[in-house]
């Protein structure tokens, strides 16, 4: 061949549309899964209610015992669970994106425990009792956790590495957990209230609480979707992101702010729920690729589904007792993650 030109353009189909269709398909699948999880969450429990009755209640109301259980007990915990799962899915995605660290999630980085500690202190010292007040303390605790963990991990010559970040987060997490139990065991009144705000439990929530979560959830979501394109560039490396015209420091700050806010609102509503923030983004990325707008959407859907399914399983596993959703997510999430890690190598950006 004497022509220096590359092969002609005949087969240049539009891969973008095909990939787009596949991704949209996964999003629809994720939405269907979530719908199923919502139905299960409304139908399953110590009083089994048929899905048809659930749908009928949702559409037409009614005052039967079943309808009252669905409306006043299961509906609120389902909506709160959905919001918590979505917040954790988004927060985990952003934490992994801005730190370029596949091990990042609100639990591992110590952000959840930082927020939980702050809420417990708020209950015991300041006597606060509503979610709207919890959120601010949780946010302060979460920000403190981010700053401290990042500062610890950033010490030394090599800077912040994924492993150092995870270690610093785990250490800080343990410290916060011990502070939390210290406060709880020495303060009976707090323990009593904290039991209501159990670790990762969704029972006994009100629709009012879900409504209070909404503005924080919306603000956090706005922030993280705002940095989606920046995270796309950042995934290629800091230098490349700069070279593509992104302001890396700004993206990191806004992304961290969004993730912290989302973690805070999730912890305020349900306590620290493990693993949803780690597993959902990994699974989402596996399905829709590396584009962060897609990953964020699917991760929110999967996070919600995971938390709801975990909550449902927690209701049926040791009746009449309930296992908190936060414990069940780990039970489901850990094997899923081990499978994931073993089947594909996890790339540290």
């Amino acid at each position: 061949m004497t022509s220096p030109q590359p092969p002609a353009l005949e087969r240049a189909a539009r891969p973008v549309s095909r990939a787009g269709a596949r991704r949209a398909g996964w999003l629809i699948g994720g939405a269907a899964l979530l719908l199923l999880a919502v139905l299960l969450s409304l139908a399953v429990g110590s009083r089994a209610i048929s899905p048809l009755t659930v749908v009928d209640t949702l559409l037409h109301g009614g005052h039967s015992d079943d309808a009252v259980v669905v409306r006043t007990l299961r509906m609120p915990r389902t909506v709160v669970g959905l919001a918590v799962g979505a917040a954790l899915g988004l927060a985990g995605t952003v934490m992994q994106g801005v730190t370029r660290n596949p091990l990042a999630d609100p639990g591992i980085l110590g952000v959840s425990q930082g927020a939980a500690m702050a809420v417990v202190v708020a209950i015991s010292v300041f006597g606060v009792s509503s979610l709207e007040q919890y959120v601010w303390f949780a946010f302060a605790g979460a920000v403190l956790a981010v700053v401290i963990v990042y500062a610890i991990a950033g010490r030394g010559r090599s800077g912040v590495s994924p492993v150092k970040l995870a270690l610093a987060g785990a250490a800080f997490s343990a410290l916060m957990a011990s502070v939390t139990s210290a406060v709880l065991t020495t303060n009976a009144a707090t323990l009593d209230q904290f039991r209501f705000w159990q670790v990762g439990a969704l029972g006994g929530r009100s629709l009012e609480m879900a409504a209070q979560m909404l503005p924080f959830l919306a603000a956090g979501a706005l922030l993280v979707f705002g940095v989606a394109r920046g995270m796309d560039a950042l995934a290629l490396g800091e230098d490349t992101a700069h070279g593509l015209g992104q302001r890396v420091a700004l993206i990191r700050v806004l992304g961290a702010l969004g993730a912290t806010l989302l973690t805070a609102v999730a912890v305020s509503a349900a306590g620290p729920v493990a693993f949803a923030g780690l597993a959902a983004p990994h699974l989402a990325r596996l399905l829709v690729g590396a584009g962060h707008r897609w990953v964020l959407c699917l991760s929110a859907l999967l996070g919600s589904s995971l938390v709801l399914v975990a909550d449902v399983m927690g209701r049926v596993i040791f009746p009449p007792e309930e296992v908190p959703a936060g414990a069940m997510t780990a039970l489901i999430g850990v094997p899923a993650l081990i499978l994931l890690v073993r089947s594909r190598r996890v790339v540290a950006g």
Binding site: A235, L236, T240, R285, L286, A290, V346, V347, G349
Partner: peptide
Amino acid sequence: GVLAQTPTAPEGMT
């Protein structure tokens, strides 16, 4: 345009 030394793409990116 800048091409960094040995850049890495995230896993699964087309």
